[in-house]
């Protein structure tokens, strides 16, 4: 089966600065949501821009549906649609005019574009805003219009760069619902620095830090990277014997302490903390824990925490 998306040793260097991407390799075979997690400046947007044929890599290769992003860019562009980070709607247009014009840019005939606009607006429940000027729309509706723009193209591969950054939790949850619907029929390459977003939406997750792919897999597969099953956060410091009995203790700047531990030890530590009347929380290892675990560890050259196959290849 042909890979839907594949990167081989993808590297991008801007001038003499540190590489924005370093030997990133990954392969995805099926539709769904792939969430690329990373902090600001991790290289997420650079990767998305290379895959979306907006930017040339310095070395390595990338392909979509078997087509090379450098050599077959024209063909790829017919099959993808991109919602860039910080994309904003042109304020003097209405949602209908925005989507209609974008569809014309995509090469549709006027009649095709007109009929697709209506369907797309209805699908994302934007009918009542269709003739309102974009500048009068709320932040959440604006994002939905942007999403509708790329959805209306009928491209089956969507690149969505930090779509919920800056939105309030209610609007964010609303957009998550829409993305969850879309993933049944589309492949969505989503970048985010919200761990919860990746945890809730993604079928596959990649973790990028300083241009290197540190982890790749499903949430369960990523959990296996961390050898502990539980995370305990103690608000008021730790007792000395707890610190020495397990390997992974992290002290935060705010005075709290986080302990990654096994199921057996978690139970024992909890009892002890209860006896000592410490304020603490305990929960199974989350994506956030995995993220901090990976990002905190020193990165060895060409090392990827990939529990699912060689060279970051996801065998679905």
């Amino acid at each position: 089966m042909e890979d839907l998306l594949e990167c081989k040793n993808l590297t991008k260097q801007y001038g003499n600065a540190l590489p924005a991407l370093q030997n990133v390799s990954l392969s995805i075979k099926t539709k769904g949501i792939f969430a690329l997690l990373g902090r600001n400046g991790a290289g997420k947007t650079t990767l998305i821009r290379i895959l979306a044929t907006e930017l040339k890599q310095s070395s390595g290769s990338a392909s979509i549906n078997g087509m090379d992003t450098s050599n077959d860019a024209k063909k790829i562009r017919e099959q993808i649609a991109v919602m860039p980070q910080e994309a904003r709607l042109v304020p003097w247009l209405t949602p209908r005019q925005t989507i209609y014009s974008y569809l014309l840019y995509r090469g549709f005939s006027r009649s095709e574009a007109a009929s697709k606009v209506a369907g797309a607006l209805a699908r994302l429940e934007l009918g009542k805003y269709e003739n309102t000027l974009n500048r009068h729309l709320s932040g959440g509706v604006k994002r939905r219009v942007l999403l509708t723009m790329i959805l209306a193209t009928e491209a089956k591969i969507l690149f969505v760069d930090e779509p919920t950054t800056g939105l309030d939790p209610v609007i964010r949850a609303d957009l998550w619902g829409k993305l969850n619907e879309l993933k049944k029929t589309h492949f969505i390459f989503l970048t985010t620095h919200y761990l919860e977003e990746a945890e809730r939406l993604a079928d596959m997750i990649g973790i990028l830090e300083n241009g290197k792919l540190l982890g790749l897999g499903t949430l369960d597969q990523l959990r296996s990277i961390v050898k502990y099953q539980y995370s305990i956060r103690i608000m008021q410091g730790t007792t000395p014997d707890i610190e020495t009995r397990i390997g992974e203790v992290i002290k935060s700047a705010d005075g709290s302490t986080q302990i990654f531990t096994t199921e057996t030890d978690a139970e024992e530590i909890s009892k002890k903390l209860v006896r000592e009347k410490k304020r603490f929380s305990i929960y199974p290892i989350s994506l956030e824990d995995i993220f901090y675990y990976l990002v905190r560890k020193p990165i060895e050259e060409d090392t990827i925490h990939n529990p699912i196959g060689k060279n970051g290849v996801h065998e679905d």
């Binding site: 821009r49 979306a52 044929t53 907006e54 024209k74 562009r77 017919e78 993808i80 649609a81 991109v82 919602m83 860039p84 980070q85 910080e86 994309a87 904003r88 709607l89 042109v90 974008y102 840019y105 995509r106 090469g107 723009m149 790329i150 193209t153 690149f159």
Partner: peptide
């Protein structure tokens, strides 16, 4: 304006335009 403020040009580069 369209390129820097709205990022529409980025959307068009990765389209058949």
């Amino acid at each position: 304006h369209i390129k820097n403020d709205f990022k529409l040009q980025d959307m068009l580069i990765s389209s058949p335009t």
